[in-house]
């Protein structure tokens, strides 16, 4: 899932300065699962903003609405009748959702309430770890299911570098060396041949905005 964390309250407050009516829009998918921007977090943030506004004698009228996915037009539609009643929209979705919202309501100032952080996994309640950089050319088949692009601090394709520290990464003894783990796993699987081969320079796929149309959905002349 896409993992996000809420922005510091002061930053959110500063962005909303001067707006009297703000609609706070949550997203019910990734950011709800990672406890950053779902229905519950929208309510909590609104309570905080409401209290701060009252204390500052500068109250904001706040609306709340959480839709299933802000990255999907089908769900955004539900906001259409509400948006005109507000001066600004605060979105608790990931960066993609926020932009899709802004695209749908180009006349309306849109502000992010979260920082989109990474594509990751759920390690425990409220505990997430990054696993994928969406590089666009997956090498997990070669590397024993451990991503060197994400998990190696230098993103090396031909690791391990000389900085491994008894199985940890040179940046932090609590961060395992990805290439050490890759080596261990492939060794146990008898597949070390995979990483004895030279891995040539990557053809980076993530240097321009990407568009994807699944083959089955292309117009006939494009197939």
């Amino acid at each position: 899932m896409i993992v996000a964390k809420r922005k510091p309250f002061e930053e959110i407050k500063e962005m909303l300065k001067g707006y009297k009516k703000v609609l706070n829009v949550g997203c019910g998918t990734c950011v709800a699962v990672c406890l950053a921007g779902g229905e519950k977090e929208v309510d909590v943030l609104n309570i905080e903003l409401d209290m701060a506004g009252k204390l500052d004698e500068n109250p904001i009228e706040l609306g709340a609405m959480t839709i299933e996915r802000q990255c999907d037009r089908e769900y955004l539609e539900a906001l259409d009748p509400l948006v005109d009643d507000y001066d600004a929209i605060l979105s608790m979705a990931c960066g993609a959702g926020i932009q899709f919202l802004a695209e749908r309501y180009p006349h309306k100032p849109i502000f992010p309430a979260v920082d989109t952080t990474f594509i990751g996994v759920n390690q425990g309640v409220g505990w997430y770890e990054e696993r994928c950089r969406s590089c666009g050319s997956c090498v997990l088949g070669l590397t024993g299911g451990i991503c060197p692009v994400t998990m190696c601090a230098k993103g090396l394709y031909n690791g391990p570098c000389g900085g491994t520290n008894k199985g940890s990464c040179e940046i932090d003894k609590d961060q395992p060396c990805a290439w050490y783990l890759i080596y261990e796993r492939l060794s146990r699987q008898g597949r070390l041949d995979n990483i004895l081969k030279f891995s040539p320079a990557t053809d980076w796929q993530n240097q321009i905005p990407r568009t994807l149309i699944q083959p089955g959905y292309k117009k006939s002349e494009e197939v």
């Binding site: 601090a153 230098k154 090396l156 394709y157 570098c161 900085g163 040179e170």
Partner: peptide, 24 residues
């Protein structure tokens, strides 16, 4: 060389390029 990670240096906030690695 790959190079020491920028986290160690005097610009820990900088972008580590690593477009290619030392082998490449």
């Amino acid at each position: 060389l790959s190079g020491d990670h920028q986290k160690f240096g005097d610009h820990p906030q900088g972008l580590g390029v690593f477009d290619i690695d030392s082998m490449q």
